[in-house]
Write a protein that binds this DNA or RNA. Sequence first.
DNA 1: TAGTAAATTGAAATCGATTTACATGTTAGT
DNA 2: ACTAACATGTAAATCGATTTCAATTTACTA
Lengths: 338, 338
Amino acid sequence: MAILGIRDIAALANVSPATVSRVFSTPEMVSKKTLNKVQKIIDEVGYRPNRMGASLRTRKSGNIVAIIPDITNPVNAGIIRAIEQGAQSAGYSVLLGDTQGLEEREQHYAGLVSHGQADGLLLFCSRIPFKTDPNLPLMEQLPPMVNGNERIDSDEVIQVAVDNVAAAKAAINYLISLGHKRIAAITGPGNIASSNERLEGYQLALNEAGIELDSALQLEGEYLVQSGMDCARQLLLLPQRPTAIFCFSDDMAIGVMKFLQKQGFVVPDDISVMGFDDINYAKFVTPSLTTVHQPLHEIGSTCIELLLKQLQGQKVEPGRRYLPFELKVRDSTGKAPE
Amino acid sequence: MAILGIRDIAALANVSPATVSRVFSTPEMVSKKTLNKVQKIIDEVGYRPNRMGASLRTRKSGNIVAIIPDITNPVNAGIIRAIEQGAQSAGYSVLLGDTQGLEEREQHYAGLVSHGQADGLLLFCSRIPFKTDPNLPLMEQLPPMVNGNERIDSDEVIQVAVDNVAAAKAAINYLISLGHKRIAAITGPGNIASSNERLEGYQLALNEAGIELDSALQLEGEYLVQSGMDCARQLLLLPQRPTAIFCFSDDMAIGVMKFLQKQGFVVPDDISVMGFDDINYAKFVTPSLTTVHQPLHEIGSTCIELLLKQLQGQKVEPGRRYLPFELKVRDSTGKAPE
DNA sequence: TAGTAAATTGAAATCGATTTACATGTTAGT
DNA sequence: ACTAACATGTAAATCGATTTCAATTTACTA
């Protein structure tokens, strides 16, 4: 563990600390001769500049913070992986802010930016974790930030996601095309934007097809497997059962299928089940799950790209960027029973 | 965005910067009167000390870095979540180092500690990412560090994991108790310690039961679903097929089951399948997966706890800590066919 | 070869906090 | 009333780099 500082290197190379610093940041300003001389010493002793010292002076930490509700959710994990890659190859490190959905923690991690511990923010929830003055333009009050996947209700924020309304609509249209008329929806938590958007798409599609909405067919879940099972139980108790169940997450769809199978129902012959996300396991459950594919890697890489742009001082237009979703038809959906 | 520094606060409160600093670090050294006065100003303007400035002086970044091969692996995600919680409640932030198994990236992230960007290291791979001098005691050359889940071959390192040998042995013993004699093993990558340990347990159990090892029944996978499918294909081509397949990860077991089912085999009637990890989805695939449970949360929390102890200057005994595994018998295993 | 422009280099200030060493003010004891 | 002991507060050094501005060297022109 060499504890040599820039002054030590400078002394060893018989130059000033300023020159050593320039060797790293602006080598073209240093003559070849001294460059070589200094470089040689640096390599010899394995010197790397201390980040804290540099950060203090440059006011750049080299970190970004990603605020996500739950890293064990495969959707988030897939996004984070892409973010990490993009950040790393641009020389940034990612601080992981797993919030468990708690506003308090969102604010804690957002605070890292204010404290100078991070330079920018990737936000995968529906709240802006800063106190803002509604009289001033939002953009001027926020640090470099990109909102991914979830939606914040403001077009002054840079957002990246699939078009949840259109995606849900496409899913329902597909089920309708199979002859389904009683289509249940298991939503996510009511305060989550992505869930509300998918609900909108669901209702829109049914309306356009002239199918009346039935509130008994709309159940609120929590995006988790267990709540899929719970909601499936409720749906089976209905006097008029649905012939298809559209779940706003794959996890819930997996729970629904498990419960239906336990009760002796055959998916999709008795009831069709459709998910949303296309997590890796969707292909491998039995029957394999029909679902809406979200381009996780692309969502992550677009988010980090837009954030890096801002950090490099480029202007990024606010507003939503839609990434393409894709219907993945597999074996959990089929023709409606007569 | 208030950009007030400690000097501004000091001026506003009519005290010196040192006093303001003490309000945060050693409030008991400040008289009640001034404490209140300063605290009031701090609350009013919402001042928080800049971390970079503090870190430079104290030589503590308040960050730890977690080096993991792949965050999209549910095993790692579960561990990381626990780590994040432990770190956060101790005032630390977690830098995510997803390495994709690349040594180069492991070293990059380990470097953050040397550069002062992180104070300690959580390592979930089998290599020490530092150049070390074999003549000197290892412990003195390493930063505060805990090795989790995987194994580094040195008892000078602090390690936390389940006893993979015993766990695999227990799994095989269970299969043997069901009457299986031709038990295949699908391992992880050959350079991964956990896989080798599980292989050892597998062989040990068979030996003790007087069952001869058959190298045709040992296939090397990559811990991924796809490699489970690939290996299953190979196993089915064997002149003498196994009656049970023990996979060293749940992902591979899921792949195996999927492939067997595609080929018309019934699990477990024709072939039993067993996994390792007990990821969340193990319960929900069909049939539900018999597997070895790893206490992910406890692994993560133990790792972070041991690291925090070190960071607080407490001495932590090197060596392995075993956490208890648990056999989860579900529906993918059954009596050996006659 | 002198004179000037351009390319290098260095000294010192700076980033924002912490902390040491010292100064001041207060209280208590004799 | 005087001094010792203690509580509290301050000035200034410090952490390790970057960067401004000035000084110096080099390169080139006339």
